[in-house]
Design a protein around this nucleic acid. Structure first.
Lengths: 143, 143
DNA sequence: TATCTAAAGATATTCTGTAACTAACGATTC
DNA sequence: GAATCGTTAGTTACAGAATATCTTTAGATA
């Protein structure tokens, strides 16, 4: 319910990098923090409209782009949806476990996975710039 | 250019499973076989329309669903695009290396990657039903 | 205060995907 | 061959996802 400390941490983090953590950005980040599951851009827009009545698709996409750029949120490629990241200050990349039953998204960070994929790619002369690793299935609570 | 043998193999494969490899399905599979890169549904639709003039979005999506179900093609989640699979008769799952420079898509099959992700998930009580593993970067020719 | 830049507002459009219903086709049985 | 039934394809309409462009506003700086 209360993510004030997480939000101020985000604010400091952005401002430390010379970026403005505006009201809109804070609001969108807060909305995402309040979800265990991921949220689609248009669902997010509906939520956002409750307080920011003039919000439009471009509003939410611009804000999401900012949050993505600074690593405050992640994008799930397999569902076209977004999740808050709680530890943006430590280094990434990440992988996701997505429960198809309850929608919960769990972020994991396996150096092993990253390294294995990098190695495989490298052996084929392929240079990786970005990894997308997402697993769908059922979480422990839903089984 | 000539994928006749691949197509007849696909036809046999489907019919062996009691499914009909119709003209439309053959056509769409052929279009995908002729590409090194992945193709979006609407680009595919444009190509398809050259011979199947009545094709509509639903036409192509239904056909893609069929081909996906039988493993004749794969879907790239990070680009919303589709690629032909050349070895649908051996067991999957697969991972992809996607060149952001030339668009080439390379399919790899690393048991290690699959196993690592499965193991990670399992240790958290998560049961994986489907993996999405895609790497973006530059292929050996584009570096 | 004047100026400059980044952010937000506004509008329109494009791309991606699905729902729902109808028509045609193919196989089976009578 | 006619009747039936399930699958495939056609058609229309719409929902969801994302971007382009241009204008306006607000913050920081000089």
């Amino acid at each position: 319910m209360n993510y004030d400390s997480q939000i101020s941490k985000a604010k400091e983090y952005c401002e430390g990098k010379g970026a403005r953590f505006t009201h809109l950005r804070e609001k969108v980040y807060e909305l995402l923090l309040n979800k265990e599951s991921s949220v689609g851009a248009y669902d997010l827009l509906d939520d956002l409209k409750l307080t920011e009545t003039s919000a439009k698709p471009a509003t939410v996409y611009r804000t999401l782009d900012f949050l993505l750029e600074f690593g405050l949120i992640h994008r799930l490629e397999s569902t076209n949806a977004f999740v808050a990241c709680h530890h943006f200050d430590c280094s990434h990349p990440v992988q996701f476990l997505i429960c198809d039953s309850c929608g919960q998204v769990q972020e994991i960070q396996s150096e092993g996975l990253k390294a294995t994929l990098d190695k495989q790619a490298h052996s084929l002369g392929f240079k990786v710039t970005k990894q997308t690793i997402e697993a769908h299935g059922t979480c422990s609570l839903c089984q």
